[in-house]
Amino acid sequence: MAITGAVLVLFLIGHMLGNLKIFLGADAFNGYAEWLRTVGEPALPARTILTITEIVLVAAVVLHMWSAVSLARRAARARPVRYAVRRRSQANGYATHVMRYGGIVILLFVVWHLLDMTFGVVNPEGYAATPYDRMVAGFAPSRWWVTSFYVVALAMVGLHLRHGVWSAFQTLGLAGGRSYRPLRALAGVVALALVAGFLAAPLAVTIGVIK
């Protein structure tokens, strides 16, 4: 859980930084997208690095989900008889709800997101358009409901990360003693920064700052 989660968090940081290039204009953004495909050339064939990254990401997602499912199954085996009264959790219930159910919401979001931005299937501009155009079209003011969906989904990602990042430190045994509080805070900051960074571009498009 922790290792695969860490891989995904590193990806998210890169992804977010890339996204923010949209504020530098269409050329910078499209150039960056192109660079992702050509990086490593001519030493390596086109898309090598990107493909490796994609494979690692898919593997990380699959393993992350597999870990989650096996943890859930172990939990079910560890408690074959459930409580009659299921009381509001004593530790806010934050983690349980956000991680397991939140994870499913995030998965659905990622599917939509890929169809929208990568394959262009649900994007008005379609696959052929430049990434910049797809972005601007996808979050156009008239498609405010798409943006709203992104906001909700990203909020979920943020909550997932807030627990997940700290939890990874905990699982890897790094959150003991004096580092406990700072790491909890760090997890919050990482989550907040990522959510803010990711939401900046779609919101900017929707409110018309980027056209």
């Binding site: 530790a91 349980t96 939890s167 699982t171 406990y180």
Partner: peptide, 24 residues
């Protein structure tokens, strides 16, 4: 079961054993 750091244990622990014990 496995630990997912939900913190429910510490919340009900009569002796308040802290969660960072698990990290150790």
């Amino acid at each position: 079961g496995g630990c997912t750091n939900t913190g429910e244990c510490t919340a009900v622990c009569p002796k308040g054993i802290p969660l960072d014990a698990i990290a150790r």
